[in-house]
Amino acid sequence: MKEDIISKLTDAQLDALKEVGNIGAGNAATALYQMIGKKVNMSVPKAAVIPLAEVPEVLGGPEVLVAGVFLRVLGDAPGSILFVMPKDSALYLVDILMGRPVSSTQVLSELDQSALKEIGNILASSYLNALSSFTGLTFLPTVPALAVDMAGAILDVILAELGQLGDYALLIETRFQAESAHVEGHFFLIPDPGSLLVILRTLGVDSNGASN
């Protein structure tokens, strides 16, 4: 059973995933620096594999306002990426990116939305590159899409797409720090059914008793 393998993930295995996250975050910080000329520190305080049904709780409940960037990942281990942050954090990041005074943005313009998608894109590519160099697998991210709405509503699309088979998400919590404030984002890599096993196996942390 896939679920058994996932529920038996050891600390060492999660550390390996967190390390992938940290390297990815480092790469993303460099990319952001090149884009906006400002130092944005990024760190990964936590990596975890969680049941999909608990994802809304991680974000503070189904009605919390969030910005979500979603993209599909094609390649050797297909899946989806969802990068979610509280709406306030998204506005803050947009202000930094666009070089405006912090908390001047209340409504996201078309350009702001593109900026957020770009952040999602940079993060996704950076994490996927790190994961790729660890595993030797090829990952190809697609063009991102953005939604700003209730957390439950944003997640439910992803839960539905995966709920037919997959029941777990790999969560890489990401913390941004820029100009003395910090905002938090939640980065979910949601492997398609079967893909998580492929990833763990190539990371050399396959649990014994794998059935397929």
Binding site: A53, P56, E63, A151, A153, I154, D156
Partner: peptide
């Protein structure tokens, strides 16, 4: 009522579900 969940009630109860997207 949570996600992928159902429930019933009788007057004057109110039944609530939050954050429907594609659901």
């Amino acid at each position: 009522v949570g996600i992928a969940d159902l429930n019933i009630g009788r007057s004057p109860d109110v039944i609530v579900t939050l954050g429907l997207g594609s659901c």
